[in-house]
Structure formats: C-alpha cells, structure tokens
C-alpha cells in the first residue's frame, strides 16, 4: 500500500481513532463493496446532512463501491453533497456550482500526463441542479468529447441546499419554491441525452437496491477507465424539502417504483459490454 496511508513511526499513539481505523481497516486496495459495509472503516466521516437524507445514503453506497479508492479523485459541486464531500477520504474538488465536468476534464487529462501508466479514476458526483441545469453544457460537452470520466447525479428532484426550488429533474406539476403553481414541464430525460451524447454506459438506480447500485457504480467506473464516458443517475429523495419523515425515504422510492414512475434502467454499448466480458475472463484466469 502507498505511504500516504501509513502513519509515521512514533505518531501512532497520538493519532485520533478515526485515522487509525482508516489505516488499519480502511478500504484502500481491498476491493470492498456494498456487501462489506459494516466490516470496514468507510471513506465518509461524520457529516452534517439531514437525518434520512437519500442523497447521503447514495453517497455512502457509491463510496463503498469505488473499484480503486486509493487511486480515485472525485469532483463535486455546490449543493448538499458538498457539505459531506469535505469528510470524504479520497482527494476531491469542490470548485464552483455547475463546472464539475469541466474541472474533471482538466483533472483527468492532467493525471494522464503525470501518471500515464497508472489507473486514476475520475468520478464526478453532483446534484441534479448542478448536473442537468446550470452545468448541463459542460456535462454534455464532456460526453461529446468522450472524456473518460464517470458522472453521477444525486437526483433529489430539487435544489435542496438553497431551500427546495424546482430543478429540471423535478416532476411535472410538482409545487416547489420558484414553481408556485407547479412545474410546467416534465422531468428532463438526461439518461436519453447521455445515450445520444456518447456515453458508453448509462444507468438509473436508487439506494433502495444497494447491491444493484454498487454493481452499477463499479461498471460505470471501470467502463469510464477504458472505454468512454459513463453516466449514473441515483434517485435520492430529500425528506427535508419534500416534507416527509426521515424514516420514510425508502418507502418513497418504493411507492414510486410501484406506481411505475421510477424504473431501474441500464444501457451499455456493445464495446463496453465486450470490455466487461473481457475483464471477467481476465479475473477468472
């Protein structure tokens, strides 16, 4: 393991417990996944997001599913998730609201120059407002340019951090701040846009299916490493702004699924599929 995860001799006994745990029982180089949650020290430390926050749960699952956390650099954006990102034990960038895919583009290309023979996964994880509204041009252009980065949207169907305003991902007719008479147009079909824009893999899932979510995160990152851009949309309801009880988050997702308004979806290009098959073959040998 790299020296960055080792404590210098003589300082072990002054290091706070959380760092000792990270060193002794962290996920770096371990190939852990969602199934291993509870058995290792997670990357995400205590954070200030609300109780029952769907987005916080999605973040936790994504972080537990990174195929190579020791070589993953993440890019976030302003929003609720940025408050938790300060507590994440992989290098991550908060730059401005909406420029995450542009930042990730520069980051990925620079890392390629500095470490041409090393895996350096660049993973963007940002809110729906950041991804589909203010940052949409940069999100799409990173796809058009076939940047080898993974884009993950934490879709809580609102601008949560600024107090629950309508976003492009809100449902039609939803009454929210800045949509006092209800939203006038449907939820933006970003997964369709992603397919048409050159993504090699597109997925929609929620933390109600943690294992599936973990699998899809892995695929999205591995495909981005070798084949091309990937997009993952994680439906992550916000109890605070949609005014339901914090323990009802999973219930909300299930209701959506039962009513047919939310479906898990996966799209993969033949090239990406072949790559995954090849990897599996390699793993067996």
């Amino acid at each position: 393991m790299k020296g960055l995860f080792k404590i210098s001799p003589g300082y072990e006994d002054v290091m706070p417990q959380e760092y000792l745990d990270l060193v002794n029982n962290g996920p770096y180089g371990k190939n852990y996944g969602v199934d291993d949650l509870g058995t290792f020290k997670e990357l995400l430390e205590e954070h200030p997001l609300c109780a029952g926050c769907g987005l916080a749960l999605s973040m936790r699952l994504v972080l537990a599913s990174l195929p190579a956390p020791e070589d993953t650099i993440m890019v976030g954006s302003t929003g609720c998730s940025s408050l938790a990102f300060t507590q994440v034990a992989v290098h991550n960038i908060h730059s401005l609201f909406g420029n995450q895919n542009a930042v990730a583009t520069g980051l990925k290309r620079a890392l390629k120059i500095r470490f041409p023979d090393k895996v350096k996964d660049v993973v963007v994880m940002a809110g729906d407002g950041a991804t589909v509204d203010i940052g949409l041009d940069m999100v799409m252009h990173s796809w058009f340019r076939r940047e080898k980065i993974t884009t993950i949207m934490l879709d809580n169907e609102a601008y949560a951090n600024t107090g629950g305003q309508e976003s492009g991902m809100s449902q039609q007719n939803a009454v929210l701040n800045m949509a006092p008479t209800g939203k006038k147009f449907p939820k933006i079909a970003l997964p369709e846009v992603a397919k048409a824009s050159g993504c090699a893999y597109v997925g929609v899932v929620s933390p109600a299916q943690p294992k599936r979510l973990g699998d899809m995160v892995r695929k999205a990152i591995l495909i981005a490493r070798e084949v091309g851009p990937t997009y993952l949309q994680l439906y992550s309801p916000c109890p605070t702004n949609y005014k339901f009880k914090s323990r009802e988050t999973m219930q909300k997702i299930k209701e959506r699924m039962e009513s047919g308004m939310f479906e898990v979806m996966e799209y993969i290009t033949p090239e990406a599929e072949a790559f995954l098959a090849e990897m599996k073959e390699g793993d067996k040998q």
Partner: peptide
C-alpha cells in the same frame, strides 16, 4: 495536451482542474 473547450467559463474551469492535478 491541447484542445478547444466549449466556452470561456468551462475553459477556465478546465485549466483549474488540470492545475489542481499538478
């Protein structure tokens, strides 16, 4: 490395990401 970005706001963010990567 060299490319044309999509607009100036994005370009300045792109060089920022690259600079942060060292």
């Amino acid at each position: 490395e060299y490319f044309r970005g999509e607009n100036e706001f994005a370009v300045m963010s792109e060089v920022m990401g690259a600079s942060m990567a060292g």
